[in-house]
């Protein structure tokens, strides 16, 4: 019974993954074939279909690398390299992760502070919210270099400028989510506080804040993924030499598609882990608060 239950859960996932991998291999063969045929023609060699397939999946700079090539590259740059090495993917991931986390933390705090202001002050609600929304309509790729350049001019370098781009992307979902969360208490819960003639801060701390915790975690899940995107984007336009963004950039300069894909995989893995981590924290906190259902 138990095995059956597990199988029925894992089965569909395995099938989907297998289908994606199969499609990927087919795609890799099709997309890498023109170049491979070109090579055969220049070298004037005869070729068979099976040889073509084998060769398209083993190119050094394929249009679309095969899954096993990406996995091999990841293995080589994580397990086989020292973490301190500039060629270690873990090293680059760590660089990106640290600015992601710093930006995410600043963004979350900023988002909470803005939301508290917006909820408590009508003027802020009317004046701030449009700016918060329009800030997100500016393409991050356009504004990222300016943030880096401006901060560089005032002497801020290193981790912080990149973190600020993460902040720029991550404060928004937190602000929007927390405004909703801080306004979520039922009318009778608010009336109760009035009958106690509670101060605004008491209402905030004892009612609005705890009510908004589920909203906070939902926004933080979105914010942390956005922060990672921000950190990677922040590494792109600056000619950074470290971080996943730098790996992507270097890979595209030199046509190292396998390196690009392995960096992308690492970024996806990190995003998934970070979101899952926020999810675990969510479950734990709500359970402690007696609100897990």
């Amino acid at each position: 019974m138990k095995i059956k239950a597990v199988a029925s859960k894992i089965g569909p996932v395995v099938i989907v993954v297998a289908a994606i991998v199969a499609l990927w291999y087919v795609g890799a063969v099709i997309m890498n074939t023109p170049w491979q045929k070109d090579m055969y023609q220049r070298a004037k060699v005869e070729w068979t279909t099976s040889q073509l397939i084998r060769d398209t999946l083993a190119q050094k700079r394929p249009v679309l690398p095969a899954p096993h090539q990406v996995l091999e590259e990841i293995y080589k740059t994580t397990v086989l390299k020292k973490i301190t090495s500039k060629r270690s993917l873990i090293y680059h991931a760590w660089v990106t992760l640290s600015s992601t986390m710093l930006g995410f933390i600043i963004g979350t705090i900023l988002g909470i502070v803005l939301a508290i202001g917006i909820v408590h002050n009508r003027a802020l609600d009317k004046s701030l919210m449009p700016w918060v929304v329009s800030s997100q309509t500016i393409p991050i790729l356009a504004i990222a270099p300016m943030i880096i350049v401006v901060l560089n001019a005032v002497g801020i370098q290193g981790l912080l400028p990149k973190a600020f781009i993460s902040t720029y992307l991550s404060f928004f979902p937190v602000t929007v989510g927390m405004v909703k969360g801080l306004r979520s208490p039922e009318l009778s819960h608010l009336d109760l506080m009035r009958t106690y003639s509670a101060s605004q801060w008491q209402v905030l701390w004892k009612l609005r804040w705890p009510s908004s915790v589920p909203y906070l975690f939902t926004s933080m899940k979105i914010a942390i993924a956005a922060a990672l995107v921000g950190a990677i984007v922040g590494e792109l336009p600056t000619g950074a030499v470290e971080g996943l963004g730098a790996r992507l950039l270097a890979g595209s300069y030199y046509g190292q598609t396998i390196q690009i894909w392995s960096a992308l995989f690492m970024a996806a893995f990190m995003a998934g882990s970070l979101v899952a981590l926020v999810g675990f924290a969510n479950t734990y906190v709500l359970k402690r608060m007696g609100m897990a259902t």
Binding site: S188, L192, T195, G290
Partner: peptide, 14 residues
């Protein structure tokens, strides 16, 4: 005064 609402209005996290 003490006020009792129609719904118990207990805070679920307490």
């Amino acid at each position: 005064y003490g006020y009792v609402f129609q719904a118990a209005a207990l805070y679920p996290w307490r």
